[in-house]
Design a binder for these strands. Structure first.
Lengths: 222, 222
DNA sequence: AGGTGCGTTGATGTATACAAGATGGGCACA
DNA sequence: TGTGCCCATCTTGTATACATCAACGCACCT
């Protein structure tokens, strides 16, 4: 009963999202309405609608009469995002521990096994994708669509930046171990532990650092 | 450095938001592009843009080729929203207790005094507005704009429904007492207590929540 | 009588034309 | 030589015209 024919603006939005996620469009890049229209062989109208949608989801920034650019996230802002994301993902994990049904729990085990495979093969791209599946499984496991949507949205907004996070040597193994711990807690119906572990997994830095950054005046860091 | 001249689409968005918040547009009401365009004496183009923005923020729902209606939130969805909002507002309160500066703490005291005034006068509309100011102060007090924006957004989406919440006799006094308790905890730098109290304040539990649900007009929930 | 199919009608989706503001370069002047 | 103003040009914002699809009603068939 949802929409039958996706509108062109929707297709454009998806295409541009892909460009951003894949890194073909980097933060700060200008989004010229005319060139986009030409590139996809449509008029400016659906392009504008797509840009508005992307703007609303925070992926790009549109300033009246000045055009659109891929959102540039300042460091303090990025820290804020991680702080919120840690809380939201922790909440997902807590609810998932209480609410996931047997089928979902089985699926979760499989997802972790997949992650393990990519870790052994040292396949960074593969692990990156499997990691996304893992987190999605827990979002959905919360059985709270509003929460899942909000968390996913934040996850996407930070995607262009989080990409670099796994490059640190040994981070994949660490990440995998943390995944396993979270899953164990969920399977053991230990909601508090699942929440705690997930928060630590996402918010690697720690609150103290966050407190410091977030009280800095505007403009102290780019 | 923000925008200089607000675009017409922006003005329309704000006007329509007002209509929704004030109850002139109720959940389920159809938003016809032509009539809106005529009413504001503009073409359909800016109207469409405004509708897209509202759709992205969740206030209205646009289905391709089928027009837009003010978002109708189902009962389970509404429960989900309250669940998330309790968590987000609690987080705001926790951070506010740690991060609010002296000026903000003073302002917070004043806001509560304002609430008290409206309670004594039994001014429902006035208290409703003061209540919003109170919550906004705590959102901003978190010193986390991302969190503040997300919480505000959820607050707005539930606004058309929460409006009826204060009608219950005695609810205002209860609400005010809860406000005071939260503020006391914040002023005492007791982050955990502030968080706990705020969560209880927002997530009207048990009987109270049931009461709230049952006072909704017909057709508000599917 | 009930259901199915088609055409009409009116809305939304898209294209194009026009208006208005913003950016950048060149020129004049101090 | 540096500065500031002005104009040209390009981009975005808005209006209007056209295309396209979905809902609705009627007729026809079963």
């Amino acid at each position: 009963m949802p929409r039958r024919t996706p509108t062109r603006a929707d297709q454009l939005r998806r295409a541009l999202e892909e460009d951003i996620f894949a890194g073909r469009l980097k933060p700060g890049d200008r989004l010229d309405e005319q060139s986009i229209a030409q590139r996809f062989d449509v008029s400016r109208t659906p392009v504008r609608e797509a840009l508005r949608q992307l703007s609303a989801s925070g992926l790009i920034e549109v300033r009246p009469r000045q055009g659109a650019v891929v959102a540039v996230i300042t460091l303090p802002r990025l820290v804020e995002m991680f702080e919120v994301m840690a809380e939201l993902e922790a909440m997902c994990a807590r609810l998932a521990a209480r609410r996931m049904n047997p089928a979902e729990r089985e699926a979760l085990k499989r997802v972790v096994r997949d992650c393990e495979g990519f870790e052994k093969k040292i396949d960074l791209e593969g692990y990156y994708a499997a990691n996304k599946v893992f987190h999605d499984a827990i979002y959905d496991g919360s059985h709270n669509e509003v929460l899942a949507d909000m968390t996913r949205s934040l996850h996407r907004r930070t995607a262009p930046y989080r990409r670099h996070q796994l490059n640190r040597p040994g981070r994949i193994s660490e990440s995998l171990a943390e995944h396993k711990a979270v899953v164990d807690a969920i399977l053991a119906y230990d909601a508090d532990e699942a929440s705690r572990l997930m928060a630590r997994h996402v918010n690697v830095q720690g609150d103290v650092f966050t407190d410091f950054i977030s009280t800095l005046p505007q403009g102290y860091v780019a």
